[in-house]
Simulated scan of single mutants.
Amino acid sequence: MDEVNWKLLCEQNPEVFAASEWNIFSEEKRRKWHLPSQYCYLQAGGMNLRIGIIAAQKDYKEEDFLLAGVLFGSRIGNGVRTLIYFVAPDFNAVFFKAISQLGGSIIAKAVYWRKKLTPSLYLVRNYSTLSSKFTLEKFESGWNKWEKQINPVDRRNLLIIKQYFESLIQRRVRTVFKKKQILFCWGNLEIAEIKMRENRIELATKVRWTRNKDIVLKFQKTGWIDSAGKINEEFCQAVDGMIDLLENMEMTNGLEAKDKLALQLIYDKEAIKSQFGKWTACPWTFKEREVKLFDPYNLYFFQKNENEINIIIPVIEKPMFKIVCALIINAVLCCNHMGREENKPEVNIQWNGKIFLLCLSEYKEEIGLCSQWLKDMQDFPVIFLPDHWRDEGLRQLKE
């Protein structure tokens, strides 16, 4: 694909933008400001209003494009009101909903780039006709659903596997159902899985949570049901060994912060449960494909009442990126009408419209700066972790 001369293109379409005489960012300045290299950046404007363009020539991830635009706007604005134009070949309703939530020190508009049309740049004025791209539906799965999809022999085997892993619930092992996979997790760490191959199932351990080759070699095992109706001993020993190792790592502060926090969020019976409800698996799934933003490490769901859902995003690294992710997740849910007022009748679990940001206290200043470019911070309440949350738990959450 030929490289686009964005400076010339923007200057040829002055009616689209609120400025002219664009200055393109040099590669040196882009690197100095830590801006992603896959986009082009232009700047104009004066003392009271800074104006920037961020242009994507190819397809993009919504969260990456938005983060780059916000980062660019923060750099050129430096506290002054800033207008950012996002220029790309295509947009969707989720991205527009996300940029519509910018409105503090940064405001944003979107511009279509149509290579084969003249003029080739068009300011987007009507967002309502765009498709969502991310289609959510209520996720219904469980052991019964899996039993219906496999052959009679594996149906018996599935029951044996189910009973085995249910015996490990007291050791904080939980079952996670996917469309073509059942995961067994300790916290958020996957320790075993069942995969479906046509109408058959395959059982194996999972050791991707470590890069230690010796640990992987020791615990990577295949499971099967023997003639006595039991899971092979080698597999069970590997599962027990992994849990022993992980529990020891927890006691000696050997877990990564995200894994330690996952255990506390999922199994806390005091502060989290009283304030947000009981942890639950994501009640929705994407119709077309998996979406990385809804990864278990990125957000946690809690059922407060019979059908009300609270959502928490941990912010223990990259605070600006996490807030951008919160904007996209908020937009995905809004575009799929998961909020209380617009809830679809067939979906009986309702989201309360807020994304709670659970942050390290050391990010207080940075979170404050990020809040300046949001239109309404009330949709993203901030809660700070206690200073000694690793050892003392989540009893003293701070707003």
Rank of each mutant, 00 (worst) to 15 (best):
Y60S: 11
V70A: 13
S20W: 01
K7C: 04
Q38H: 08
N5H: 13
P36G: 07
N23Q: 06
M1L: 07
L35W: 01
A18R: 12
L49C: 12
E63V: 14
W22A: 05
G69R: 05
E15I: 04
L67Q: 10
P36E: 08
L67T: 12
Q43R: 10
F72S: 06
W6P: 06
F65I: 08
R30L: 02
S26A: 05
E62G: 12
L49S: 14
S20Q: 12
L9H: 09
N23W: 00
V16N: 12
N13C: 07
M47C: 09
I51M: 11
M47F: 08
R50N: 07
K32W: 02
E21Q: 15
L49G: 09
L66V: 12
M47E: 13
A19P: 15
R30Y: 03
E27H: 09
I51S: 13
I51N: 13
M1T: 14
Q38C: 07
Y60M: 04
E63F: 03
S37F: 01
N5G: 11
G52D: 05
F72M: 03
A55E: 10
Y39P: 12
R50G: 04
A55Q: 12
A55M: 09
P36H: 07
M1S: 14
V4F: 10
E28C: 05
E21R: 15
E62N: 15
W6Q: 07
L66D: 08
F72D: 07
W22P: 03
P36S: 06
N23P: 00
H34N: 10
Y41N: 01
P14F: 02
A19K: 04
E63W: 02
L9K: 14
K7W: 04
E21S: 15
I54C: 08
D59V: 06
K61W: 00
D2L: 06
C40A: 14
R31H: 11
N13K: 10
K58V: 04
K61D: 05
L71R: 08
L42E: 08
H34C: 04
K32A: 04
G45W: 02
I51Q: 15
E27Y: 07
I54P: 13
S37E: 10
I53S: 08
F72K: 04
Q43N: 07
M1I: 07
L9S: 12
C40D: 14
Q12E: 10
L71N: 10
R30N: 06
V4G: 14
Y60P: 15
E21C: 13
N48S: 13
V70R: 05
N23H: 06
P14W: 02
P14D: 06
L35A: 02
Q57Y: 02
L67W: 04
L49K: 14
Y39C: 02
K61R: 11
G73W: 00
E63Y: 03
Q57N: 14
A44S: 15
V16C: 11
D59K: 13
F25I: 01
N48I: 01
S26F: 00
W33I: 00
E28H: 11
W6V: 00
G46A: 08
C40M: 09
F25S: 06
E21M: 10
H34K: 03
L66R: 11
K29S: 05
F25K: 09
W33Q: 04
A19G: 14
N5F: 09
A56Q: 08
E15V: 05
E28L: 03
N5D: 15
A44T: 12
L9F: 08
K58T: 13
P14N: 11
K58A: 09
L35Q: 02
N23R: 13
M1H: 12
P14L: 02
K7N: 07
F65K: 12
Y60E: 05
